[in-house]
Design a protein around this nucleic acid. Structure first.
Lengths: 168, 168
DNA sequence: TAGTACGTTCAGTATTGACTGAACAAACTG
DNA sequence: CAGTTTGTTCAGTCAATACTGAACGTACTA
């Protein structure tokens, strides 16, 4: 019964749009990512536009965005001039790396404030120190998750079989 | 030299506005939080409005938001009808709890999709399983950070001295 | 070379939501 | 009771930005 599948796919694509949107990304980027989770692809730009009922311009900008975030990769088919897109091998870990970058920048703000603040303000320095320590713990914790994920990726595990190894 | 301090404070308040905004919260919420990190307060609603040069309406809605997120607490001064606000004891850990809640909802989407998807789609199920495992690892990692923070809070440490114990 | 397919970019539109001013309700003061 | 003070809420405005259609540049094809 393929109707049930279609409905589940449509629902998931829609929800991923909302989830990514809550993370500050365009909704369509979430739709693209959601679709690629549900169906491996690869998809051409035109296919994505038609499948998601949005303009090719939107697909172009959002695929480039996801490409910059290293969530998807652009591939080619022999004898076909179109660009094709599919999920990159470890899309979630790569996405998380971007989050870590953002948190590092936030931490930089805290630390530069610590530097430029007069010594006398002891209480303020303590609160900043606490915030800095919090960021440190969080970043470290994130990196742990990413590293664990990458380690798992070393041995071509069952959970990511096809097209996993870059030098196939 | 208090000019240097004022400049550092203004800069930090502004930056916290941008950081919180990047996390999907209103900029003014970041300003409030930033100010309270730099100066302990407590601040009345009117004080915040004047200090940050925004309307009292904005302060009202944003203090309520931060209150819901458990980042700040509303207090009272004897013989003063105004509400006063200051950072809650472990504001960052509490904020993180909200993030965890959001991620749990996202994970729910993944799992309900797994349930409603026909068994036959093996590859899709594997990708969803990977995403689910990723969320699981992330949530667990977050909870670890929060728990560690809370444990540290148990013994009234040096890094959070005044007004730390609820039953003073 | 002209023609076509493909992806990108740019100006314009539409939507979202942050912020404001004003009206309002509740609690206090004389 | 009338008059303040305080916080909330609501309609309206404004700014940010996601998305579209059209124009453009490039590369392939006949």
């Amino acid at each position: 019964m393929t109707y049930k599948a279609d409905k589940a796919i449509a629902e998931f694509v829609e929800q991923m749009g909302l989830i990514l949107q809550a993370e500050g990304l365009p909704r369509i980027a979430g739709h693209i990512m959601g679709l690629m989770i549900m169906q491996e692809g690869p998809f051409s730009l035109s296919q994505l536009a038609e499948r998601l009922s949005v303009s090719r311009a939107s697909i172009s900008t959002n695929t480039r965005l996801l490409e910059d975030l290293e969530v998807i990769v652009r591939t080619a088919k022999p004898g076909d001039r179109q660009d094709y897109f599919k999920l990159s091998p470890q899309p979630y870990a790569r996405l998380l790396r971007g989050v870590v970058r953002r948190m590092r920048r936030a931490r930089d703000v805290v630390e530069s404030t610590q530097d430029s603040l007069p010594e006398g303000m002891t209480d303020t320095h303590e609160r900043l120190k606490e915030l800095d320590a919090f960021y440190e713990a969080l970043i470290e914790s994130f990196m742990d998750v990413v590293d664990t994920w990458d380690a798992e990726r070393e041995r071509p595990a069952r959970q990511a079989r096809q097209s996993e190894r870059p030098s196939a």
